[in-house]
Design a protein around this nucleic acid. Sequence first.
DNA 1: CGGTTGAATTGGTATAGCCCACCTTCTTCA
DNA 2: TGAAGAAGGTGGGCTATACCAATTCAACCG
Lengths: 247, 247
Amino acid sequence: MTATGTPARRPAKSEHLRRHLLGLLSTRLSPHDRLPTERSLAEEFSLSRLTVRRVLDQLEQEGHVYRVQGSGTFVSEPRIAKSMELTSFSEDMRSRGRRPGSLHVTSERVPAGAEIGYALRISPSAEVLHVRRVRTADDEPMCLENSYFPSELIPGDLVLTLHGSLYAELATRGITLHRAEQTIRATVLDPADAEALQAPPFSPAFLVQRTAYDARGRAIERGESLYRGDRYFYQLTIYRDSPAATS
Amino acid sequence: MTATGTPARRPAKSEHLRRHLLGLLSTRLSPHDRLPTERSLAEEFSLSRLTVRRVLDQLEQEGHVYRVQGSGTFVSEPRIAKSMELTSFSEDMRSRGRRPGSLHVTSERVPAGAEIGYALRISPSAEVLHVRRVRTADDEPMCLENSYFPSELIPGDLVLTLHGSLYAELATRGITLHRAEQTIRATVLDPADAEALQAPPFSPAFLVQRTAYDARGRAIERGESLYRGDRYFYQLTIYRDSPAATS
DNA sequence: CGGTTGAATTGGTATAGCCCACCTTCTTCA
DNA sequence: TGAAGAAGGTGGGCTATACCAATTCAACCG
């Protein structure tokens, strides 16, 4: 369901039902309220029950509803803290009510080298675009970021727009990130990084190493971000694997 | 699909196909290999195409395969680092090849108080089970953990087994965790905590605050863990929300 | 009044078949 | 030789029907 690849899609009759239910969920219904039965929804919307079930399958997978056999379909408790998911720094900050920005932006095209090449699964001699930025929230330095992209993904004339979201730039080129692997370490700032972040030396910090992939598993970005521990904290929501997935 | 609530389930004819495909994925097939078409699988396994599609839907959702309309179904690139998902400390350590354990276990039943009561959505005067442990990996102190559970979830005669996994204990009572919200902060160890962890004072550390919920959204656990930053790092895989989920 | 039974209701699995949108490949024609 | 077009195969969406399994609840009986 809900293929993640192609951008534009079919009209899909079931979309009416989906929007109707999402409307109910956000306004009229409360957690643990019972939704109409599958059979009644099918009749009301002139759909087959199987189509109704596909819509409910997706809502269940997204965590909006849960189902109890023999009893009914119910509204889930809302997710309280939004997972940071694959949000970029920009989206992350905006969702916290802060204004994202960048300082000291530099970008250059360099050979990948061993580590970056390995992470991006390209030759160490292949060219990558290296972007270095100090990310700010409400003009306060928050994070020191080094990102590497396979060079051909980003044409050369666009490296000047890097004060905004690189992920948004990628999205306009049809590149959608699907998955990211992150390693997060607790550390303290060495004097050089402390100065770049205008923070006290040896104060707490996060070191986040990330590799991001598209839906086909191609590595798109390798990056390293150093966050000020006194200003930033990580918030995330973790979901269990579906039980069958372990077999 | 694949409801996450109940433990035992139906025999399900489609399970044969699922196991067959998972077998192919783990042995004979490589990333980006093409799977048999839906129609041929339906014939081979004497299933309807819709049933085949349900199985493939799930495999796609789990990230094992991806589909291209008009072309076929293909094997995804493998997930390299396993997300730590909802694994407990014990599972987390074992997956890293280390032997989990506990030191200085204490447990007592106390009133929840304002903060814990709020997090667990129960009355501040309701009784909770407070478990305090120093978690170890290969007998080295790794993490200082304080967990709180609604008292009625864990009968009194079992608090002595707390050297192992509390989540495993909960699972035997039919309580399955479905979702956890975590806040991770970078900090340094104060002298008292440093001594409990046998670590140098003011060395880097993670402070992880967690609330865990079951499939119905009931709060099951509130906990606070202080990890040694010199020995522990966070590894996680993040997946994008399905595109439709944002509407 | 309390426990048991059983029918009605609800979600879970499955079948067979239809048309559409998209991709690939082969054929045809300039 | 190369480009345009046609044909066939693939996944995507939908219908109509049937039976299974778990839950619920009212009727019944002790």
